[in-house]
Design a protein around this nucleic acid. Structure first.
Lengths: 245, 245, 245, 245
DNA sequence: GATGAATGAGGATTCATTCAT
DNA sequence: CATGAATGAATCCTCATTCAT
C-alpha cells in the first residue's frame, strides 16, 4: 500500500489499474505456466519461473494456487473450455457437403485452437498424462470424448447423405484426429527444434491431409481392396493387384 | 583368464553368471530407464527407481552412466538403432503394388517398433525434445529424416508407377507418419489412461488408417476438389460443391 | 517503503530486526565458514554445519552463496581486506629507528591480524592452496605480494639509514614473514592440539623472535636492545636495557 | 594366477618379481598416499587415486590398510622415523662452534628431510592436525618434541660455551624451527602455486636465515661470517670461527 | 593375495512451500 | 494482498568399504 494512495487525483487510476491487474493475476499466471509447462514439462518447470514470467513473486503464486499441482490442473482446466458446445451448434446447422464440413472443421480447429497457445495443452497432456491420472480423466471427458463425438457426427452425416463410404466408423475418426495431434506435436516438440524453413507449414499440411483423406491416393478411384493384407498370400495379392492396375 | 575357470563344477557357472550379469547391467538399466522415462518423464523419474527396477543399487547405475542425463542420451541412442538400412533394402526389392507396400510398411513398423518398448522413445522424445536439444537433433537425423526418406520413396514409387496420384509429395509423407505417431502417443499416453476395452486396437487402427488413406472417403472416387478452401468465399464453395454432389 | 513502517510500535522494530538479520546473514555465514574451514579444512567441512553455526538452515546458505566453493572464495576475499594501504601510510610517516619499526610491525600485525580470526585465512590458504589455484593466485597478489613489499620497504629504510646490514635483501624479508606464518600455524594447527600451558605465548614468542632477529645470537656483538618494546612501558624498558648496554 | 605359471623357466622370475612387488606394495601405497595427501589434503584425496598411483586396485589398498584413516596414520608414522636418535648422536660428538652446528643442523635437515618427500608430512600434519588428534599427539611426541629438544641442546651448548647470548631459551628454539617450517610450507603450498623462477631457492633461503639469525641485523655488531658454509671446507671454517671466538 | 563390481551412507544442491513483515 | 527470506524434504551424485570371484 503506497503513499500514493493518499494523493488525490491519481489515486483512483492507480487503484483501478492495480485492481485490474489483481484480477488479471491468475490469468497471467496460468498463461505463464502454460508456456513453461509446454516448453519444459511439469517437473522441469520451477514455480519461481512461472511467477517471474507473470511478473509477480513466488509467494503470490501460492496465493492463487494451493500447489504446483493445482496450478497444473488449473492450466489444463482453463484451456479446455467447452468450445465444443458452440462448435456442435455450428456444425448442426452447417450448409454444404460433408467434405466441406471436414475441411472446415480442421481449418477452424487450427485457427481457433491449433494456432493458439491452447494447443500446448495437447502436448502437455500427452507428456504428463501418466503423472496426473485425475486431470487426464477430466481431459478425456472434457476434450477427447466431445471431440471424437463431434467428428463422428460429421462422418455419420457424410455416410447418411451417401457422401462417405466408411467401413469402420469408430476408427475412422482417428483419420481426422491423428493429423491434428501430429501437427500440434510438431509445433511444440521436435518441430520446434528444427531450423527455420524446415518446419511444417500448418495450412499446407492441413490441405494435404484433407486432400488425401478425402480423395485417397489411388488414381483409379475404385477403392483399394480393403481386405487386402500383406502376408502370407503375398503372391496372390500381387497378382490380383497387378491385374487391377 | 584365471585357472579357476578351467575347474569344472559350480565355479565356472557362477563366474559365468557374474560376468554375464556385468555385461547385462547396462542393458538392464537402459530397459528400466526407458520404461520409467516413458512413463513419468525425465525429470520426474528418480535414478534410484531406475536402479531398483534394474535390480541394482543407486551407486551401480553411476558405474555405467556418468549422470542421469547421460543415461537419458544412452536410452535414446540405444533404441534408435539404424533399422532403416535393413528396411530400405527390404523395400528396394519389394514385389507388389505400392499400396501393398504402404500397408506392409505400416504393419511391419507396428510389429517391429510400435508394439515394442522402442516405441516409447517417440513419446519420450516428444515430451523432452526442448530439454535435450542435442539429443533431439541426433534423433531428428537418425530417425525422423531416414523415416521420412523411406516413406517418400514408397510414395514416389507409387507415383512413378502410376498407382498414386499425389499433389504435394513433401507433405503426403505426413499422411503415413501422423497415424503412426498418433498410435504411439495413444499407447504411451492418454490411451494408457483409458479403461480396458476403450483402448485403441492397433491392428484395427492401422487397417482403418490405411484403408482411408488408400481409398479415400468419398464414394464418388472423383477426387475432392483440392483447391477448395473454406473462407472467405464460403458461400461460393458451398454452392459449387453442392452442385457437384 | 511501506506505510507500516511509519506506524510506531513493535512493527518498526521487528521489521528492522528482520532486515538487519538479512543483511547480517552473509557475514554470519562467512564467519561460521571461516571457523570451520580453518578447523577442519574445506573438504571436511559440511555446509550444513556452517549453516547451523550461523543459525540458519542449509537452504539459506545457498541463498547467499552459489556453492560451497563460492563460499570458500568469499571467505578468503572477505578476510584479506587491503589493510596494506593503511599500513603503508602508517609506515611512511613512522618516526623512530628501523628496529622499532620492525618490532612495531610485528606487534601490530599480531594485534590486528594474527590474534584475530583473519589469521585463520593463512592456515586455510596454506592447507588448500593446491585445491584452489585461482583463489591462491588472488591471495598471492592481494596479501603476500603487498606484505612482502611492505616489509621490504622497512628493511630498505634500515639499510639506507645505516641501521641494518643486510646481505640478501630479497630473502631477508622471510626472516620477518616466517615467524609470523609459524605463529599462525601454531595457533591454528598443532599448537591448538597441545595441552593448555604448553601453547605458544604470542607476545613472548614475538619478543623472542624480534630480539634474535635484531640482535643476533653471537656474543661478539653489541646486543640489540632485547627488551625494547613499543608501548606503553617503552621508557622503563629502555632504562633497564640501557643499563645493560 | 595365470597359465604362465605352468610354463617352466619364466615362471620363477615372474614369481620372484611378483613377490618382490608384493612386499613393496605397502610402501608404494604409502608413497602414493603421501603425495596425494600433501597435494590435496586428506579429505579431498580419493583412495582410488592412491591405489591407482601405486599401480594396484582399490581393493588391494584395503588389504594392507584397514581404512583411509589407518592409511593416513601409517603415512605419518612411516615418514617420521626416529631420525633423531641418529642426529642426537651426530650432534653429541660435533666438533666446531655452535654457530656451525646450527648452520649444519639446518643444512642437513634440508638435505635429509626438507628436500625429500618426508617434508610433506609437516604440511600434512599442519593441515589435518585438528582432524586427527590422536596422530597429532603422536607426531608431537615423536617429531616436534625431539626436534625441539635437539635444537634446544644446540642452543644450550652455545650458551654454555659462551658463544650464544640467549635471553629466552624456551622460545629461541622457534627461531630455528620457524624458518624450516616456513620453507616446507612454501614448498608444498603457496610456493608451489607460484610461477617458476619466483619460487624460493632453498639453499639461498637457509643461508639468509642462518646469517640473520646468527649475525643480527644491526650494524653495531661484528657481522657473522656470511661466507661460512658447512662443507666441504668444514674444518677450515671450524678453525676460523674457533679462532674468532 | 588381487581384483573390481557392487553397495549405501553421506553430502551438496534444488525447489516447492510457508510465513513474518 | 504482496513479498521474498527462510525452510527442509527430496534428489543427484560421490566414494569408502565390502566381498564374490
Amino acid at each position: 500500500m503506497s503513499l500514493s494512495k493518499l494523493i488525490p487525483g491519481k489515486t483512483e487510476e492507480v487503484q483501478a489499474k492495480r485492481e485490474r491487474r489483481k484480477e488479471a493475476r491468475p490469468g497471467e499466471l496460468l498463461d505463464a505456466a502454460l508456456d513453461l509447462f509446454v516448453e519444459k514439462g511439469f517437473a522441469a518447470t520451477r514455480v519461481e519461473e512461472v511467477a517471474a514470467r507473470a511478473g509477480v513473486s513466488k509467494g503470490t503464486l501460492f496465493l492463487y494456487f494451493q500447489s504446483k499441482e493445482e496450478l497444473f490442473k488449473a492450466v489444463v482446466r482453463e484451456n479446455i473450455s467447452g468450445r465444443f458446445a458452440e462448435w456442435n451448434e455450428e456444425f448442426e446447422t452447417f450448409q454444404g457437403t460433408s467434405a466441406e464440413m471436414l475441411r472446415y472443421c480442421m481449418t477452424v480447429w487450427w485457427e481457433r485452437v491449433g494456432a493458439t497457445k491452447a494447443s500446448g495443452i495437447t502436448k502437455l497432456m500427452i507428456s504428463e498424462a501418466k503423472n496426473f491420472p485425475e486431470i487426464t480423466a477430466f481431459y478425456q471427458q472434457e476434450v477427447i470424448d466431445p471431440g471424437q463425438r463431434l467428428i463422428r457426427r460429421i462422418l455419420e452425416r457424410g455416410v447418411e447423405r451417401g457422401e462417405f463410404r466408411i467401413v469402420d466408423l469408430d476408427y475412422a475418426v482417428y483419420s481426422v484426429i491423428a493429423p491434428m495431434v501430429f501437427l500440434v506435436m510438431s509445433k511444440h516438440s521436435l518441430g520446434a527444434c528444427v531450423p527455420q524453413g524446415k518446419a511444417l507449414l500448418p495450412e499446407r499440411y492441413i490441405a494435404s491431409q484433407v486432400d488425401i483423406m478425402l480423395g485417397g491416393l489411388l488414381t483409379n478411384t475404385t477403392p483399394a481392396d480393403p481386405t487386402a493384407t500383406i502376408s502370407p498370400d503375398n503372391a496372390a495379392n500381387n497378382k490380383k493387384n497387378g491385374a487391377r492396375n
